[in-house]
């Protein structure tokens, strides 16, 4: 399972490189009037990226085939990684995404308290939530002092 994920990741990189190269081709001819045009550099980078990503993809596929026989061991490793640690990065990504969405409508204070609380819970547990709310409020107030009071950054507020 873990190895398949690696192949998928390397395939995505290859796909990204090919996509970039195709868009670069559509930017126009690379040479005109004895000079390089805007498409030339992206074409060159796209070529290198396709070369590197195809080597990496080939290596991963080869590795996957050679380890296919020891699939059971991989499944065990994957199971060991399961649980909180496995989903924690996804939970952090979701927290940041929601925080960004709520940052302007809810204002700095409310959105930040919810965000910091969610990060603290992801990095610990759901125990002693009240204590964690107090800690989150202190951290957010400290952030307010640093950004708005010390460095004069105007942060959004609920009341506009």
């Amino acid at each position: 399972m873990l190895l398949n994920k690696n192949v998928v990741f390397h395939f995505l990189l290859f796909f990204l490189s090919v996509g970039y190269f195709v868009i670069a081709i559509n930017l126009g001819a690379p040479f005109a009037n004895n000079g390089l045009q805007p498409s030339s550099f992206p074409l060159l980078i796209g070529l290198f990226a396709m070369m590197f990503s195809s080597i990496l993809l080939y290596r991963e596929v080869k590795l996957m085939k050679s380890k296919a026989s020891s699939l059971e061991d991989d499944t065990q490793t994957d199971n060991a990684l399961s649980g909180k640690g496995r989903f924690a990065p996804l939970a952090v990504m979701l927290s940041i995404f929601l925080y960004i969405l709520l940052f302007s409508p809810l204002g700095y204070f409310f959105s930040s308290i919810l965000f910091v609380l969610s990060i603290i819970i992801i990095f610990s547990s759901l125990e002693k939530v009240l204590q964690k709310i107090v800690i989150s409020t202190i951290i957010v107030s400290f952030g307010y002092l640093v950004f708005e009071q010390m460095f004069g950054v105007r942060l959004p507020t609920l009341w506009g």
């Binding site: 952090v92 940041i96 960004i100 700095y108 609380l117 990060i119 800690i135």
Partner: peptide, 20 residues
Amino acid sequence: IRKDVLYGIIALLAVVGSYV
């Protein structure tokens, strides 16, 4: 220092920092 608190601070500084 407690890691949950530490990463709470870091996350706040990182995300709000990119707003600045």
